[in-house]
Design a protein around this nucleic acid. Structure first.
Length: 268
DNA sequence: CTGGATTCCTGCTTGC
DNA sequence: TGCAAGCAGGAATCCA
C-alpha cells in the first residue's frame, strides 16, 4: 500500500534521473493509461526536468505541459533497472528507456494504480486535499474539516479530498499515537485531541520517510528495495498481538470499510 | 451535501 | 494435498 512516505521515498530514489531524456516509452497494456492529453510518443527525446510528489501521486514533468503522473494503487511498483537487465517479473505494464542506460519499470499486479498523461497538472490536482507535512496542515485546518462531521475520524483522515497521502497503515498508526479510537465520530474530538492527532500524523509520516517507507507486502522503492518502517509499526497488522505500550491485545475491526487496528486500552 | 455500499483486480490465506 | 472461497485495499461511483 504505497502511501505518502512510500511515494516520497520513490521520488528521492529518482534524483539521478533528473535531466535524463526518454529514448522511448512502451506500454504492454494501454488500459493502465487513465487519461492521455497527448500521445506517449511525444515524450520521446524529452528530459525529466522535474520529479515531485503530490499526495500519493508521483509527477514527472518533461518540460512545458508534458507531465507523466503515476499512482501506484495498492500493489504498484515503480523502479529503475539498468537497461541491459532483462529479468523482469509479471505485470510489467510500462517501460520508459532513458539515455542514462536506465529503464523505468511500472509494475502492478492488481492494477488499482494507473498512469495519466496530463497537460494541466494544476487542474488535475484541483480537488486534492492539503499536504499533511506542510505548515498549512495544522490543528486549525484539521478542526475546520472535522467540525460537525459524523463519520469515523479514521474515514475522515483517509479522505484524499481533505488530506492527501494518508492510507490505511498511517491512519491506524497516527490514531494510535494520538490515543484516539478510529471509530470515534470526527466531530466528537476535543481541541486537545485534534492537536495531538495533527502532530501524530506529521510524526508518523516523517518517521516512516526516514525509514524509507513500509514494506508490508508489495511496496518497493525506486531501486526495487524494501523499506524499513514495518519494524516500527505499533498497531497495523499486529492484531491479536500485545500492545507495545500497555501489553493488552490489539483489536482489529472493519471501520469505514477498512481493516482497522487499535488498542482498546490506549485509544479512547 | 453527507455517509455508506459497491466496484475494480490478483495473489495470498484459509478451510474443508 | 488440492482446490475453491474469502479477503485485502485506493478511489471513483452510485444510492438513499
Amino acid at each position: 500500500m504505497p502511501e505518502l512516505p512510500e511515494i516520497e521515498t520513490i521520488k528521492r530514489s529518482f534524483v539521478n534521473l533528473i535531466n535524463s531524456k526518454v529514448l522511448r516509452i512502451e506500454f504492454n497494456r494501454y488500459d493502465i493509461i487513465r487519461r492521455s492529453d497527448f500521445k506517449p510518443e511525444e515524450l520521446h527525446g524529452k528530459p525529466a526536468e522535474i520529479i515531485y510528489r503530490r499526495g500519493k501521486y508521483l509527477v514527472f514533468n518533461f518540460g512545458g505541459h508534458l507531465n507523466l503522473i503515476v499512482h501506484l494503487g495498492m500493489s504498484g511498483r515503480l523502479y529503475l533497472m539498468e537497461d541491459d537487465q532483462s529479468v523482469i517479473g509479471k505485470h510489467v505494464h510500462m517501460i520508459a528507456y532513458f539515455n542514462n542506460h536506465k529503464k523505468l519499470i511500472y509494475q502492478d499486479a492488481r492494477r488499482f494504480g494507473g498512469v495519466w498523461l496530463i497537460n494541466d497538472v494544476k487542474g488535475f490536482f484541483a480537488r486534492l486535499g492539503k499536504e499533511p507535512l506542510e505548515d498549512d496542515f495544522n490543528p486549525q485546518y484539521l478542526g475546520d474539516i472535522i467540525r460537525n462531521r459524523k463519520i469515523p475520524i479514521k474515514s475522515l483522515i483517509l479522505d484524499q479530498h481533505l488530506i492527501s497521502g494518508i492510507g490505511n497503515i498511517y491512519a491506524d498508526e497516527a490514531l494510535f499515537e494520538a490515543g484516539i479510537k478510529p471509530d470515534r465520530p470526527a466531530g466528537s474530538l476535543s481541541d486537545l485531541e485534534i492537536q495531538r492527532l495533527c502532530e501524530s500524523i506529521k510524526n508518523v509520516l516523517a518517521h516512516s520517510i526516514e525509514q524509507r517507507g513500509t514494506t508490508f507486502r508489495d511496496y518497493r522503492d525506486g531501486f526495487n528495495q524494501a523499506g524499513g518502517f514495518q519494524n516500527y509499526l505499533k498497531v497495523y497488522g499486529r492484531h491479536q498481538q500485545a500492545c507495545v505500550r500497555c501489553g493488552k491485545v490489539i483489536s482489529r475491526e472493519v471501520i469505514g470499510g477498512r481493516g482497522s487496528h487499535f488498542c482498546c486500552n490506549c485509544q479512547r
